[in-house]
Write a protein that binds this DNA or RNA. Structure first.
Lengths: 158, 158
DNA sequence: AAGTAATTGTTCTAATTAGAATTATATAAT
DNA sequence: ATTATATAATTCTAATTAGAACAATTACTT
């Protein structure tokens, strides 16, 4: 078996599953005239007093350069608003407007039903195990990423 | 904890792990002056006589509209070439040029080492189980999506 | 054979993406 | 305090992304 010369199928399957899930979730979100990242921001802000872009990006896995644009489009739609922080001149609070909160309350319960349908045939233990396995792989990736510094760059200090 | 009102953490973890893996893989690919999708095309075409864009897209999970651009950029770099099919006027064959094949041969072995490092702490059984669990979830998504039976049970090994 | 339907690939668009450079502000060090 | 460093968010760029519309070609139906 020449599995040594092929790309690990487990990783290909990770990509495939990820992609399939996104296209599934989009079915529920696109009819709301929202993109997936936009809806992700809304459900992350739902039932919160708002949060800084930095934290919002960490929660949604959207990098900051991207987040600026996503939030701006939601602002244009009147679904979120940016408030300047008084404590920190660099910082903001992003929160849902009333219209944004209304969308959240109206759609999120059914979104959860829609998503959880995927696990109809799973026992809670099976879901937990899958999650634990994904956490383990994630940890392996982060570890490898941190350990894999070919050029430590210790010699060149500015 | 109001876990009923929160997004399933197993899916969030799927997205997180996927993202971490891509950024890890990019470390090895970007120094080659290639994007991840571009490199994916190259390793998919490696050691093959070439293939149609349709199949190439299925293998790499790149949708056709995107694939046109990815292939064009690789063509500009002289790494792949498009050949018109004589049997089917709509169709093409995309294959590596000599330069593309050279990059493949020079980099893919070390790329595999780089990637397989993620599973250093896994037993083969653990990898198989994770893959099977991902296949199961993928199947659940496709089933829920409802557009089943587009792909015959031809799940060949890559 | 003629007309209809399906397939292949390109083009077009709006949005996302990561990464780098930039601006503005805050914190730390001396 | 003054300088240096770190952080927060925006801006900029090239590429990818999905989806829709399109042109060209092939396959099917009658």
């Amino acid at each position: 078996m020449l599995s040594q010369s092929t790309f690990p199928t487990v990783l290909r399957q990770l990509l495939r599953t990820h992609q399939a899930f996104l296209s599934y979730a989009a079915r529920h979100v696109h009819p709301l005239d929202l993109t997936l990242p936009q809806y992700d921001v809304i459900i992350t802000l739902g039932n919160t007093p708002g949060m800084q872009p930095k934290k919002l990006g960490e929660e949604t896995l959207i990098t900051k350069g991207t987040l600026t644009g996503v939030v701006s489009r939601l602002e244009d739609k009147g679904l979120v608003e940016r408030l300047a922080s008084k404590k920190d001149g660099r910082s903001q609070i992003i929160r849902l407007t009333e219209a944004g909160q209304a969308i959240y309350e109206r759609t999120f319960p059914e979104h959860l039903v829609f998503i959880n349908r995927l696990f109809d045939d799973y026992t809670p233990e099976e879901v937990s195990r899958l999650e634990a396995d994904l956490v383990r792989l994630h940890r392996a990736v982060v570890t490898a990423r941190g350990d894999d510094v070919e050029e430590p760059a210790h010699e060149f200090q500015e």
